[in-house]
Design a protein around this nucleic acid. Structure first.
Length: 552
DNA sequence: GCCGTTTTCGGCCCGACTGTTTTCAGTCG
């Protein structure tokens, strides 16, 4: 169990405590401990967990238990007190633990009952709830039911990677690779698809699967295919294929279906003996088509006409959005810089929050200047690495920015973003963001739509108008690589590219390890057909500085 | 459940918005 997974169990305990206990503070303690762990800047936790602030005797014991057994007895006990089918309602906007508590208390045990209660106007009669909550439930459930069968990439991606890391060590496994929607970078996936070449028959593999931490049960078994369910509620499909047909089946199981069908027509009939994926495309008379753009089938003719050169991880030379301990980050500036250097970057911008975002420890103007001093000190020790002093300034409700222009003018880099008043109507929101774009000090608009995949809809915003405006003002739009954001999404990336708007792929990392999340951002960029030249932070440090200077 | 020296009890990240409420509580960053 990684510390992030432990944090997730603690958070879950917190949620269940909120649902079952009268006093909110025990729950708060667990949630706070979860956050602390998540932000803990080292992979290894200290020997004495009690040294970590917010973790005392009980929670330390809980962490040990989770580390050793992979589960928590307290959590299992709490789970028994809550009807499991009603829990997904927590993901709905405006529905939190308090509303859910009332519903549970009143005997609602699953979503169907809640829908019925809402339709019959019974829910508004419950103490503490009203017509608006009833409406929010109905509307939310409608969206939820569409999304219930899928898992956001933010969860599925690490899960799949962990699984592959474990499986490839097994003696039964000769070759292993990720396939399916996840390999293509689809935002919400229906399953984790993995293809394998085995040294034994698949029976041996099946016998061993229950030893996996995340294994729940075998769901189905067919020749060449094993499906099992994980504790995280997602299916894992394991496809076993012969080594000499590896390339063929990797293309087949990566999909999409439409892509494969289109491709198949160009292949010699019946031939499956392709050891490498590249050979499949070669045989079809095509350049290699990257998995991320294998979608509609149209890409087959598109690469024939236009060729293909998508950005890759190796093209990235820096990150222009991350948070340090000065605001709500978990690593200090020196740690962030050191990680960026390890990743082979040439530059990094520290961009902590601005003053009005109190909960995130937004910096007052005085603190911002104090941070400048620290940055300059660290700069003095750096060779061949550019450390920029930036800021993520809040776009206030009326479109003004959270610092005066004089302050912004003095920054190396200014990122503007929305963190409050999410529910303005489309016109007002578009005006608000436009105003920020028109400020000449703003270099980048961060997470432009504010969506959280599978959790929060984007706010009402005319993104097309924003892209058009960005083309005029020369503002860069961010592709935020935080796995639950991936914002802008591929269709907008393509639109931006077509209109000459440059994209900046940033992690928005809140601790040094998260700087590595750039990979999902790059994957998303590839889905939007972005080439290195469409992306700002593929530039060398010299070119980047020139670009930023020109914008001043 | 955790924390602390102005507290070993009585607080618990801040502030705005909104819904259900008529003076406050839940949700969301």
């Amino acid at each position: 169990m990684t510390k992030d997974q432990i944090a997730d169990v603690l958070r879950e305990i917190g949620v269940y405590l909120e649902l079952t206990e009268d006093s909110p503070y025990r729950a708060l303690a667990y949630k706070r401990a979860a956050r602390t762990l998540l932000h803990w800047p080292h992979w290894k936790l200290p020997e004495d967990l009690g040294d970590i602030p917010g973790i005392g005797e009980k929670i330390a014991a809980a962490i040990r238990e989770i580390q050793e057994k992979g589960e928590s007895e307290l959590l299992e006990r709490l789970k028994k007190k809550v009807p499991p089918q009603i829990l997904p309602l927590l993901r709905l906007p405006d529905i939190g633990t308090k509303v859910l508590r009332i519903l549970i208390k009143e005997g609602y045990a699953d979503i169907a009952q809640v829908v019925e209660g809402a339709r019959n106007r019974q829910i508004r009669k419950l103490p503490g709830l009203g017509a608006k909550t009833e409406k929010a439930l109905l509307k939310g459930i409608e969206i939820l039911e569409k999304g219930l069968e899928v898992m956001p990439i933010a969860l599925a991606w690490p899960l799949a990677n962990e699984l592959i890391t474990i499986l490839q060590e097994w003696p039964e496994v000769n070759k292993i690779a990720l396939a399916g929607e996840l390999r293509r970078g689809v935002e919400q996936v229906r399953s984790i698809d993995i293809i394998l070449n085995l040294t034994t028959d698949s029976e041996r593999l099946v016998q061993r699967l229950p030893s996996l931490n995340l294994f729940k049960e075998i769901k189905g078994q067919d020749k060449g295919k094993v499906v099992f369910v994980t504790h995280f509620g997602i299916d894992v499909n394991l496809f076993t294929v012969p080594e000499e047909e590896w390339g063929y089946w990797l293309v087949y199981f990566t999909g999409s279906e439409a892509h494969f069908q289109r491709l198949e027509k160009l292949l010699p009939p019946e031939k499956k003996e392709f050891k490498q994926e590249r050979e499949v495309y070669q045989s079809a008379g095509l350049p290699f088509i990257d998995p991320e753009v294998r979608e509609t089938g149209e890409e087959v003719s598109r690469v024939k006409e236009e060729g293909i050169r998508l950005a890759s991880d190796q093209d990235m030379r820096g990150d222009l959005h991350c948070h340090s301990t000065w605001s709500d980050g978990g690593s200090d500036i020196a740690e962030l810089v050191s990680m960026a250097q390890q990743m082979g970057y040439e530059y990094l911008a520290i961009t902590d929050h601005s003053q009005s975002l109190k909960i995130a420890g937004g910096l007052s103007q005085e603190r911002l200047m104090a941070q400048r001093a620290e940055i300059e000190k660290i700069r003095g020790r750096l060779n061949n690495f550019t450390l920029l002093h930036g800021v993520e300034v809040d776009i206030l409700k009326d479109g003004r920015l959270d610092y005066p222009d004089e302050i912004l003018a003095g920054m190396d880099l200014v990122i503007a973003s929305v963190h409050s008043h999410f529910r303005l109507d489309r016109h007002t929101m578009t005006e608000r963001v436009s105003l920020a774009l028109k400020n000449p000090h703003v270099d980048i608009l961060a997470h432009p739509t504010g969506r959280l995949i599978g959790m929060r809809q984007p706010y009402e915003l005319d993104v097309e108008a924003i892209i058009d405006l960005a083309a005029v003002t020369g503002t860069y739009l961010e592709l935020n690589s935080s796995p639950d954001r991936l914002d802008l999404s591929p269709p907008y990336l393509e639109m931006a590219k077509a209109r000459g708007v440059r994209i900046c792929i940033n992690t928005d990392a809140h601790n040094k390890d998260r700087l590595r999340d750039i990979n999902l951002g790059v994957k998303t960029a590839r889905r939007g057909w972005l080439s290195p030249e469409d992306i700002v932070n593929t530039r060398t440090s010299t070119d980047l500085l020139k670009l930023l200077e020109k914008r001043q």
